[in-house]
Design a protein around this nucleic acid. Structure first.
Lengths: 160, 160
DNA sequence: TACTGATGATCAGCATACTGTCAATTCGAG
DNA sequence: CTCGAATTGACAGTATGCTGATCATCAGTA
């Protein structure tokens, strides 16, 4: 390993940096100002209405602390509501607003475009293989980070 | 694309998150407190003594603004020196200190280990292919980010 | 030489992400 | 049922990374 350009860590960071830039550009041209994390959180709250912050963090593999700030900003934008759970007063229950639903519908095409652009250097077969390897690598190393992916029991998660 | 887990952007972020965590753990167990960016900067300053901050930023594909803070912390740790260039008074010239050299030598094995751990879910052939695709994708999308990789003229860069 | 555009560095500001710590609350073992 | 462990959310602190702006300096040209 003579060079940092031969290191997976460095290249992965590079691609992630590119992915964020592309995401921003696409979403902005759709008329919205939403970060990748905010988008992931929105999508998950829509599929899991009434989810609490800690469970949401596990589903998208983010740290609890980070999610608090993300949710703050989504509430501020009027895309989410957050209220104390009736069954567990520690937990804050998250739900999408009408505004959030509408925004997500309009943002989704931009996000699709962004995903294609990120791998625009690869042909279709390469992209498929790349995704398979990405999934395999992240699955195997899931517990190396403080914020591992945690499936909810009964949740299909990554299954097709 | 039914799910965020099928999106390259999401998976790349995940792997990057894992890579940073693994890097931290390994470097810490070697007795140092250095981030991936700081490491990349150190390596590049060693191979390019007397480099200025903007060129350094281009070589490791970071934003100029980000590098300023990184260099600040490396100077504070005593790993780098920063002084005004004699030929261009706008530029700050960077050089490694003895301390920095010594630290880098001791950190390198930990970084090697980290790189292996990041792809520990893949066998050797898969890892090689994954790296090839990573490089291809990042090369193609290089200019999508504000901080593209910029080779110095006459610099071998990524060549073997 | 004076002007213009490009470049290097810095600053303010925003949004991740992490560690570590804490308080409030819930839950399970005895 | 009670007490200790676990969980949820929050806060402080640090380090990336980005955008947009400003300032000093340099280089090429009229």
């Amino acid at each position: 390993m003579k060079d940092i350009n031969d290191m997976p860590g460095h290249l992965v960071r590079r691609l992630q940096q590119i992915a964020v830039a592309v995401f921003h550009a696409q979403v902005e041209s759709a008329g919205f100002d939403l970060t990748p994390v905010q988008y992931a959180a929105l999508v998950r709250v829509r599929t899991h209405p009434g989810i609490d912050q800690a469970t949401l963090a596990g589903l998208i593999a983010y740290d609890r602390t980070t999610i608090a700030g993300v949710v703050d900003r989504l509430v501020q934008k009027g895309f989410l509501t957050r209220e104390v759970s009736g069954t567990d007063r520690r937990a804050r229950v998250l739900r999408m607003t009408e505004t959030g639903e509408a925004a997500l519908d309009r943002i989704e095409p931009a996000v699709e475009t962004a995903q294609k652009l990120i791998l625009s250097g690869l042909d279709e077969a390469e992209a498929t293989e790349f995704m398979r390897l990405l999934r395999k690598a992240t699955d195997a190393a899931n517990d190396f980070s403080r914020a591992p992916l945690r499936q909810v029991s009964g949740d299909p998660g990554n299954a097709k």
